[in-house]
Design a protein around this nucleic acid. Structure first.
Lengths: 234, 234
DNA sequence: GCCAGCCTAATGGTTCTACCATTAAACCGT
DNA sequence: ACGGTTTAATGGTAGAACCATTAGGCTGGC
């Protein structure tokens, strides 16, 4: 006989955060909106302020809300925080579920798709932005500021993803690169001149709308970079 | 003059969760380990139990720990929960940062890469698993259980990703499919027979290690499915 | 001897109260 | 009109008390 189901399994703060997520899906809450104050929410839900706070903590960690203190403070619905996805994958990596080469392989897949899309649909203005990035990197290299130049080189990939106009691809690119960066050692400077040359060739392929050639060029570059990363690992 | 930096910007519970994440990165904490009890943590950190609970709530939401109540209960380090990543992306979607076609396009990219890898490196046993999935789906179709058959068809893609042996790709595939599923309408049954035929052809290409042909077959299928999804949207 | 039932201790879950720190806006004296 | 002060609202922290669940030990009757 199984006549009786458990009276209650969910925890109070989960009920609260679920209610708020509901209103999000329903469109009743939109980015920029402000939730009632903690004390007021506690009153409305008929719970303690503590339970409300734990629910808010959960939503905050998920990048759904931002909390501001002081008068006129409160919990505000955000535009959505890609960093939350990144954080989760970082945790997964550190918990040992993922390896560096797993991440590198996935990154290769994303980059491949991005390059194909950019070759097919990027506007000339977008390509100019990419050129500007390479110019800036070259200038920094001449000045000997390897650190800043490396930063710009990573930004190149993010720019590339943004040229697709697809925020999902941007998100995935940022996340995977962040993961790779979190375990890398600072790259040595010896090979930096080569990167600039490769980038120039790559842009030539893009402007010619030659997706296959651009992919080949990028692949060669990434294989090399990922090898360097792997060498830095034990 | 900027002689004085803010005395404290981070909140107490953030300091606590950061400390725990530190120990994770350092390897001092491993999956399966149990954290001290809340009261004990509060004592060690010299804070209130409340702050500890909010830190644990944050870690729990991130899939880093699981909480069990009762005697011998406590906070246990998990193996890593891919669901946390999914949840974050779901939130992002609902916050309006992403569109259905964005997700579909990214999914296409991942699937393309997965197919190429599977064609290149899948073991015969893996391919047999895929065949078994198709057989089961066909059987369900004959019985008229469209619901269960659709479920199996989605599982096919997850199996495919698992054949790559890369958990990152598995994670991305699961997440993106989950996202697509969360906004789809139940597909109509009229086209289901066609899917089985396509799958059989696809497997033929895989066994022949013909990545290009397999990709073409899968692309055609996904383009169609995504169109159906889009049609279900306003 | 054994076993069902009870009891106890440990732990997370919840509530309540009090107070602090920060912030913006209202207020007031000059 | 200006500038400083006060006030009120809000999130952040602390501490205590109690509840619900769970594991394990205890006990008494068979």
């Amino acid at each position: 006989m199984e006549d009786f189901a458990p009276v209650r399994t969910q925890r109070t703060f989960e009920l609260i955060s679920d209610r708020i997520r509901e209103q999000l899906r329903a469109g009743a809450l939109r980015p920029g909106d402000k939730l009632p104050a903690e004390r007021e929410l506690a009153r409305q839900f008929g719970t303690s302020r503590n339970a409300v706070r734990e629910a808010l903590r959960s939503l905050e960690h998920g990048g759904v809300i931002e909390l501001q203190k002081g008068a006129r403070g409160g919990a505000f619905i955000t535009e959505g925080d890609p960093g939350a996805v990144s954080q989760s994958m970082q945790d997964l990596l550190h918990l040992g579920g993922l390896t560096l080469s797993n991440v590198a392989e996935a990154r290769l897949a994303i980059e491949d798709a991005v390059v194909a899309l950019v070759a097919a649909r990027a506007a000339p203005a977008d390509l100019d932005l990419l050129d500007a990035n390479i110019d800036a990197a070259e200038a920094l290299l001449r000045e000997g500021d390897v650190e800043a130049k490396t930063e710009l080189n990573m930004e190149f990939h993010n720019l590339l993803a943004e040229c697709t106009g697809n925020p999902v691809l941007v998100l995935l690119m940022r996340t995977l690169m962040e993961l790779l960066r979190s375990v890398n050692r600072p790259l040595t400077a010896e090979d930096t001149g080569d990167v600039i040359r490769r980038r120039r060739r790559f842009m030539g392929h893009l402007r010619a709308r030659d997706a296959a050639a651009a992919q080949t060029e990028m692949r060669a570059h990434l294989d090399r970079v990922h090898d360097l990363f792997a060498a830095g690992q034990p």
